[in-house]
Amino acid sequence: MTALAQRPTDSPPSDSVPPGIDAHRLAERRVLPLRHPLRWVITALVLVLLLNFAQTLFTNPSWEWEKVGKWFFSPPILKGLQLTIVATAISAVVSFFGGIVVAVARLSGNPVLSTLSSFYIWLFRSVPLLLVLVFLFNLGNLYPEIGVGIPFGPQFTVNTVATLTPLALGVIGLSLSEIAYSAEVVRSGLLAVDQGQHEAADALGIPKRRQFTRIVLPQALRSIVPAYVNQIIGLIKASSLLYYVSLLDLFGIAQNLGSTYPTDVIPLLVVATIWYLILTSVIAVVQYYIERFYARGTVRVLPPTPLQRVRRALSSRRATAGVA
């Protein structure tokens, strides 16, 4: 122990203290935190640049905000938005479960299944989504009829073009490519579950299927969810490629209206941008709560949600106001 730590009131300062200072007095005062002047300068600089840009939003007439307002809730835009949401939602759900199937197949001991799923992932990660979509839209030329049956035996077939609507083809295209990515996301999540969890479940004789749904998958989802939401956000934007196969999604509608009303191109792009921002933000909020759900048990106490934080701040302010 040093003399400083013991703080005997009358004993002389020890030799370990620099000469010429009053050890007792200094030791009792609060240590001053380091200041960061450069931080303030850089912050000011960034704010000035930001304000410059913000100003142009109001002063530059080309933004044409009144037209943005006019188009924002217009029926064609909402219809395009609906198509974007429907195509994305169906593909997201299909590719989540498809991804689990492909990932489990890849991790399985069955060499045929595991090789097939590796091949599938390799194929659809290699080929551009746009190419997949255009390919599918020409499927009628390649296979006028599709179906299943016993080779050289009875067949069940339907007409390709009549059965598969453009939206169905679009969703199939998005899903085919998305499954390849989500399979890898799911696989990484499954591999992240500690081997001891499998052993404990084995030792307790829990049946394999229940081991997967009750023990392994819930733990894997903790690392799957953030990566998969990332995929979904990518999927929303990838759905704009549907425009190239003549499906009018949000982006497609904005493009189309832009060529019909050439003076409104900028406002229409702004409308589409804002809608994409809204979609992504909604997903981010949902993601926050899903992650929180799967985090139970991983930390001793979960941090409060933003809403709880606001409520707590308000109630503590009320409390202090009451005291005053």
């Binding site: 404990a200 307790l204 829990i206 023990i215 819930p218």
Partner: peptide, 29 residues
């Protein structure tokens, strides 16, 4: 797995299921 029901096993690293409550851990099997 059915045979293992007759043999309990306690691991060095516990290997409890972290996402289940204590009661759920014990009642799961």
């Amino acid at each position: 797995l059915r045979q293992r029901a007759k043999i309990g096993f306690v691991f060095q690293n516990f290997n409890l299921f972290p996402h289940l409550t204590i009661l759920e851990n014990v009642s799961e099997a």
